[in-house]
Write a protein that binds this DNA or RNA. Structure first.
Length: 470
RNA sequence: GGCGCCAUAGCCAAGUGGUAAGGCAGAGGUCUGCAAAACCUCCAUUCUUCGGUUCAAAUCCGAAUGGCGCCUCCA
């Protein structure tokens, strides 16, 4: 089955065909580093990371670009408030972004370009737009003239005239048209600035993405992605300035993720429900956050709450328990298993189910359902049945490849355990088994309870006792 | 006012015109010294409502109702 993606440009699912062979230029709008990134920012970060991994799993050569916007009004405002250079703010929250992303299991992009490293490219693009009469300069500011670009509004499905009638009153008087947007802003005294033909200034909000995607990707990207709120004006403006300059489509496919609410309400600082990833990770396993997002389709709205997270944790634990059984059986086995064709076929069917789900506009929620089916299959197996070998082995493969490499989930709850710890655990378990044999339940329970206090769970089976970290 | 999205069990959620995946919670049972984990059984004759198309609709069309988003910085 061919991969299909929902393209915001046409509002339809389309077959995914890269522009050139199996090469994919995939650009995601990264953070503006003016604050710690929040749980809502984590959604595109995690979901598009999974899409990227799946494309690679499918054999595509993915050039994955996630920019850092490190110059912007919000950064300048914060720097002013704290009385530091804007670079201090940008550096601090760029570091926090990379740190959080790493903890969430997000793979580093092929390249993470920064806006401030690309000022020259932006100046060139602005010049080109002026030369082509798509932009005009007023008092050191350069604006894009949207009336010069007939396709304006095609991504967001907006009509220019209707937008003009509904435009806010507080528009910049210097613009020819209220909807024209800034490509270059003149600097006020004391503000960070770069020299330009129009005087000292800084780039407008949208220009950095156009420049960085062209530089590190192509004039026409295969995929451009971001949050739904970026459709207008950000992505609309990127299209206008890029296509006006290059005369070719800016991106073949546009992907947009749905919003996240907190307890049914929009997240905002004024409501006091603003949750940063940094804070959340002090409370929850990052992989729980990952599976929380994976359990729902990326384009739907998602609601974040304690209860949802508890459910996500329970779901993850179910998969981890199954994986724990896989390892327990494989380790305990004498490796005298016979081949079972039925199990092979069954597991092939699960694998195909997951791939079909992902091929259908990255339906991770459906894909996860198949993982639970596999978990059930593992849990139902008689661990002493030698015919179970191929099923268990194949299941492990699916967990390790699709589960870990594509979805970025970790199932192995065993921390890095050294030989000494393993030996000690075996001794403790042996002593407790002796106590149990003598029906010394007090001692047996004491051992189990004390271990639980330090995060180790003992599980008695008919054939012995296994242990794992919580 | 303009543009767009959504409505499936107690909760979350998938659903590709052919007769409702999965997870959580709950009830009963099995296993166990007790736990934990797991397994088995039960838990939507029905998909907000009303029309329509069709042999067949949760899926397509229309309308109503109820939520939500964007149009201003936002992932």
């Amino acid at each position: 089955m061919a991969l299909k993606v929902y393209n915001t440009l046409n509002r339809k699912k389309e077959e995914f065909v890269p522009i050139k062979d199996n090469h994919v230029n995939f650009y995601v709008c990264g953070p503006t580093v003016y604050d710690y990134f929040h749980i809502g920012n984590a959604r595109p970060l995690i979901m598009f990371d999974v899409f990227r991994r799946y494309l690679e799993y499918r054999g595509y050569d993915v050039n994955y670009i996630v920019n850092i916007t490190d110059i912007d009004d919000k950064i300048i405002n914060r720097a002013e408030k704290e009385g530091v250079n804007f670079k201090v703010i940008a550096r601090k929250f760029t570091d926090a972004f990379f740190d959080g992303a790493k903890k969430l299991g997000v793979m580093p992009a092929t390249v993470h370009p920064r806006a401030t490293d690309n000022i020259d490219g932006m100046l060139e693009l602005v010049k080109k737009l002026i030369d082509k009469s798509h932009a005009y300069e007023v008092d050191g500011n350069v604006y894009f003239d949207i009336s010069s670009f007939p396709g304006y509004g095609k991504l967001s499905g907006r009509d220019i005239e209707q937008m003009q009638s509904g435009a806010r009153i507080n528009v910049d008087e210097r613009k020819n048209n209220p909807l024209d947007f800034a490509l270059w802003k003149s600097a006020k005294p004391g503000e960070p600035s770069w020299d330009s033909p129009w005087g000292p200034g800084r780039p407008g909000w949208h220009i950095e993405c156009s420049v960085m995607s062209m530089k590190h990707g192509n004039k026409t990207l295969d995929i451009h992605a971001g949050g739904q709120d970026l459709i207008f004006p950000h992505h609309e403006n990127e299209i206008a300035q890029s296509e006006a300059a290059n005369g070719v489509p800016f991106s073949k496919y546009w992907l947009h993720n749905g919003f996240l609410d907190i307890e049914g309400e929009k997240m905002s600082k004024s409501l006091g429900n603003f949750l940063t990833v940094k804070d959340i990770l002090t409370k929850y396993d990052p992989i729980v956050i990952r599976i929380f997002f994976l359990l729902k389709h990326y384009r739907s709205p998602i609601d974040f709450s304690e209860e949802r997270i508890k459910e996500a944790k329970a779901a993850l634990d179910r998969l981890r328990n199954a994986y724990h059984k896989i390892e327990y059986v494989l380790n305990a086995a004498d490796a005298e298993f016979t081949h079972d064709e039925n199990s092979d076929n069954q597991i092939e069917a699960y694998k195909k189910g997951i791939e079909d789900a992902m091929d259908d506009d990255f339906n991770t929620a459906r894909a996860m359902g198949h993982f639970f089916d596999i978990a059930k299959g593992i849990n139902s197996l008689d661990e002493h049945d030698k015919n179970a070998f191929s099923y268990i082995n194949a299941a492990k493969q699916i967990f390790d490849t699709l589960g870990t490499k594509v979805f970025g989930l970790t199932f192995d709850t065993q921390k890095k355990t050294d030989d000494l710890s393993n030996d000690l655990m075996n001794i403790i378990i042996e002593i407790r088994q002796n106590a149990r044999a003598e029906k010394n339940w007090g001692l047996a329970d004491l051992v189990r309870n004390r271990l639980q206090e330090i995060g180790i769970v003992l599980e008695d089976h008919t054939g012995g006792t296994s242990w794992k970290y919580i």
